[in-house]
Design a protein around this nucleic acid. Structure first.
Length: 592
DNA sequence: ATGATCAGCGCGT
DNA sequence: TTACGTGCTGATCAT
């Protein structure tokens, strides 16, 4: 049983592991690990605290409030009442006393309410475990305790016991995890990127971003009316009422009742997604209404109605959570609410962005975005002269690609050709196949294959970079980014060619996307430091993969612009160099 | 009835 | 079936 569980874990077959756990009878979970703890007062631990070089730290919290303070010097976990926080404050703020944590960001966040700035966090179990295995879905005490300390820790502990265990693990996982990080040459990305980024993210979350609730409320009513009209029209054209939001009900209306020709299948029936609807647009008038309905319903339910509910009543602002241990590539993710997927493409969606505003109407939002960071990273890593030169000469890269691939002079590149070249560029970054490109461009696979062939003809070093990356990945079963961030690729060992192909695409994309993620993380740390050094009041509030959004004090607009541009462009010395565009406005729409 | 989970879908970079 | 995410609604199943 133990062996099998370990093997699955090793291969990161997460779902299999989960299933295995469910099958484990209670009896096999014997030898539960029981951490010892004792209720202590500040006086009882003050001597040890004074002489300590490091201490594991955790809190027991209820909503935003700290109930108990947990400290460990290695043996038993001390549980102190929250009332002792004031006495411990100087130790928490002392950067020379190393804090070992299980998950530092919530601790930093919790302390902010008591106006304590946690300093000296030298170890974070979650960040370390993530860098070692970025494709795992979670990093529980139970999994990590077993993996690195061979402890049997039951899942589903009550919150008190869990907090004690986490504190214990924060102390005792430091050595084995640090050793593994060193072995994997992950110290740089750990110490210089993830660890210092964590308090920056905490500050951004804490600050939040302003949103105009009333504007969204008005918009919700407008959308409701428009949706209502479309609904009636759809019912009329269908000849009956049905749940338009149900793909299965819609499918039977379109493909059974109205006898439209199915375009593609899903696991459970015929697809009704937007590409299918687009192909059916001339077959029946109901389709156009459906397309419009889908767009409005999506915007209303996901944004217009959802966001106002998430405004913090105390701060009147939206506070996202930036997840630092979720993505396979090293990107951040954002949740509750997700502020990394706010609409921008359509006019319907743009009104959402307009509702994102600074705290004071006199202030501004400033958006700083990296221009083509992923393609620049590709040029840098591949050292392809043609691609590098395009950036150095400040060309429109998609237009330049079109000129190369289609053999046209730049001024003869049509919108159509540029659009195709743009899809090819995206395809390269994602790890291309002619089938995928064909589907994207709605052309046949043969034509797509010639585009790809021509691309590699004109950018031979991109081709050799991709080949090198893939063959390296097969050899090592992992790939690394600019900063040494690692992604394991067990898919490359699969006997299934589709799974191996996925592994190959992941290899290419992870290096490029992950390196870009490294760079913007470095930039965030540097920008944050520079804001303090220059004593600016403006603050970074959001990150959306290749852009940073700031709340800019009106008087600081120009100082902030130059600071941000300078810090972002110098975050990493790339060849071709990094380029950042900056714009400002009274809301997020007008700052783009 | 209520909650958990999956499928389908579509928003962003 | 070109990468990486979050989250909505509806359907289904367990409680």
């Amino acid at each position: 049983m133990k062996k099998a569980s370990e093997a699955f874990s090793e291969l990161e077959f997460n779902t299999l592991l989960e299933r295995l756990k469910k099958l484990t009878p209670e009896a096999e979970k014997e030898a539960h690990f029981e951490p010892s703890y004792k209720e202590s007062s500040f006086e009882q631990i003050s001597t040890e605290l004074k002489k300590a070089k490091k201490v594991a730290l955790n809190f027991i919290r209820e909503s935003d409030e700290i109930n108990s303070i947990l400290l460990s010097f290695g043996d038993s976990v001390h549980v102190l009442e929250a009332a002792e926080l004031e006495k411990i404050k100087p130790y928490l703020e002392d950067k020379k006393l190393k804090k070992l944590t299980f998950d530092s960001k919530p601790l930093i966040f919790a302390l902010r309410f008591d106006e304590i700035r946690l300093a000296g966090v030298s170890f974070d179990v979650q960040l370390g475990a993530y860098l070692l295995q970025p494709t795992r879905t979670n990093y529980t005490a139970s999994d990590l305790g077993f993996r690195y300390l061979k402890l049997y820790i039951g899942e589903g502990q009550d919150s008190f016991r869990q907090a004690i265990i986490d504190c214990y693990l924060a102390y005792h996982l430091e050595e084995p995890l640090t050793k593994k990080l060193t072995e994997g040459k992950l110290e740089k990305v750990y110490n210089e990127l993830e660890l210092p980024l964590s308090p920056v993210l905490a500050a951004m979350e804490y600050r939040g971003i302003g949103i105009n609730k009333e504007e969204l409320k008005t918009y919700s009513n407008e959308l409701a009316q428009m949706i209502n009209k479309l609904e009636e029209e759809i019912y009329r054209l269908a000849g009956e009422e049905f749940n338009i939001n149900s793909p299965s009900q819609l499918s039977s209306i379109l493909f059974e009742k109205l006898k439209l020709k199915p375009v593609k299948k899903t696991k459970t029936g015929y697809s009704t997604d937007s590409t299918v609807l687009a192909k059916l647009i001339n077959e029946h008038p109901i389709i156009e209404n459906m397309i419009n309905y889908r767009e409005l319903a999506k915007i209303k339910s996901t944004y217009v109605d959802a966001l106002p509910k998430m405004v913090n009543p105390k701060t009147k602002r939206l506070h996202t959570t930036f997840n630092q241990t979720v993505t396979a590539t090293g990107r951040l993710s954002s949740s509750n609410p997700n502020l990394q997927n706010i609409p921008i493409r359509t006019d319907i969606g743009k009104r959402i962005r307009k509702a994102f505003v600074p705290a004071r109407a006199t202030d501004l939002l400033l958006v700083a975005d990296y221009s083509q960071i992923e393609l620049r990273v590709l040029a840098h890593l591949s050292k392809d002269e043609t691609l590098t030169k395009a950036f150095e000469e400040h060309k429109d890269v998609h237009q330049a690609t079109a000129a190369e691939v289609f053999g046209l002079p730049v001024n003869k590149v049509s919108e159509e050709a540029r659009r195709k070249a743009k899809a090819v560029n995206f395809g390269i970054v994602y790890g291309i196949s002619s089938f995928g490109l064909a589907q994207q461009l709605q052309i046949d696979a043969k034509e797509a294959a010639t585009y790809i062939e021509m691309y590699f003809n004109r950018y031979p070093k991109v081709k050799s970079f991709i080949d090198r990356t893939v063959s390296d990945a097969y050899k090592k079963e992992f790939v690394k980014t600019l900063y040494g961030r690692c992604r394991q690729l067990p898919e490359l060992k699969s006997n299934d060619v589709r799974i191996r192909n996925f592994g190959e695409r992941s290899a290419i994309n992870s290096v490029i996307q992950g390196s870009a993620a490294d760079i913007i993380k470095q930039a965030m740390i540097n920008v944050e430091n520079a804001l303090f050094t220059d004593d600016l009041m403006s603050r970074m509030v959001l990150q959306v993969h290749d852009e940073l959004i700031f709340e800019a004090m009106a008087l600081e607009k120009s100082a902030l612009s130059s600071l941000v541009k300078k810090q972002m462009e110098s975050a990493y010395v790339l060849h071709p160099s990094l380029e950042v565009n900056i714009s400002t406005g009274p809301n997020w729409l007008e700052a783009k």
